[in-house]
Design a protein around this nucleic acid. Structure first.
Lengths: 215, 215
DNA sequence: TAGATTGTTAATCGATTAACAATC
DNA sequence: TAGATTGTTAATCGATTAACAATC
């Protein structure tokens, strides 16, 4: 709605708000105050109001927020009112898992194609989508209005694939490979580094164990 | 090494340092300065030095950091010098993908058991591990020194499973279910909310598109 | 020794929390 | 109208960056 840049800290919290508001809506809750929501989500009411006000006022003094309205507004902010077509590159276990994940469709993310360089995988079906050879990828991206590429390939293949994706007009990459991508300005990248996440867990676990030992 | 609490912002960066240092080591690089590393990783040299100094001095004035030493030290900080046994709960696509993921073993994470409530899955093998019925989970956790449970089940089953895990002494949970877990203090939780991540990508994508339209 | 680069203190920046006037 | 709760400004806190003295 506005021009000012929203910080990634705020963006990062939006999906969680969206999740809670969706649940509340499903439970038939009509209105909620920042105070109530803050208790539910274990964040400060102040932060909630600040976050929402980045996008303009969604609430009403003395009343609070209308759950259904707020839910929809956040959905719009997140771009979930739009349809996005995505392809998965790398038909291994993780690629298949993501392809089979039904919930994405509900949010407007349409699984449109899947590619692998392993000849044994070609023709295999994942949720109705046939795995195609890597060579078919470039044309497919160009001709099928693909917004998002999901990268579930080993890191050795990444540089080459990303270059081709960019050359054919991809706009966003959801990267599960364990490398940092190098893309031109304007291409959005969201990394899911699973092993990084596991290491964080390992750190917190180890630190807690050491602390416990000492006491 | 120290008592002071390290911020999660710093912890979150450690795996990335670890990744870069591992690569440098594999390339045979012996020493590196914070300046060089900062150019490589696209962060400030100041941040690098501050981060490392949270754990005591790893470098040497006038020389920089020894890559191999630093790599190993960060590994230790992350707890990767220890062995962790983990089980996967939920033998669906994502659970299988994680079970098949070989790299975890290299970091000391040992895939030890897999459980599912679907009778059709029982007995199926994922990387040499037989899927067991959910009823076997509690005893297995108690008797096999399991540190980490990986949750790849639908959110409806989560509350019950988490309660059982906690009751049987689990220390850490790697949560892929789309709910926030409620666990007693001292149990470590690391969330991987895939749909949240996709929504963040969607936001940045949509915002960029809107900006472009306007110009 | 001179040059390089860390470790660390100080300055800045941004994000979170608190407070309260505006207003439903 | 009185009470409730937002929107928003101000205060605080923490994280990042800059600067430089210590030292290899």
């Amino acid at each position: 709605m506005e021009d000012k840049e929203i910080s990634q800290a705020v963006i990062g919290r939006l999906p969680r708000y969206f999740r809670y508001l969706g649940d509340l809506r499903d439970e038939g809750v009509e209105r909620i105050s920042s105070q109530e929501l803050s208790e539910l989500m274990k964040v400060t009411a102040s932060q909630i109001r600040q976050d929402f006000n980045n996008f303009g006022g969604f609430g009403q003094q003395g009343y609070g927020y209308n759950v259904d309205f707020l839910y929809k507004e956040i959905g719009k902010i997140l771009g979930l009112d739009q349809t996005h077509h995505f392809i998965i590159i790398g038909a291994g276990n993780l690629g298949q898992a993501l392809g089979n994940y039904m919930n994405f469709e509900r949010r407007g993310f349409i699984f449109s194609g899947m590619f692998d360089k392993n000849p044994d995988m070609i023709g295999k079906e994942v949720r109705g989508i046939k795995v195609q050879p890597m060579e078919a990828m470039e044309q497919f991206v160009r001709e099928n209005d693909i917004d998002i590429a999901v990268l579930t390939i080993p890191k050795t293949g990444v540089v080459d694939v990303v270059e081709k994706l960019v050359a054919n007009g991809i706009k966003a990459i959801w990267n599960f490979a364990h490398v940092d991508l190098n893309v031109p300005e304007g291409i959005q990248v969201e990394n899911v580094h699973l092993s990084d996440s596991l290491m964080k867990l390992s750190y917190n676990f180890s630190r807690y164990m050491k602390e416990k030992e000492r006491s």
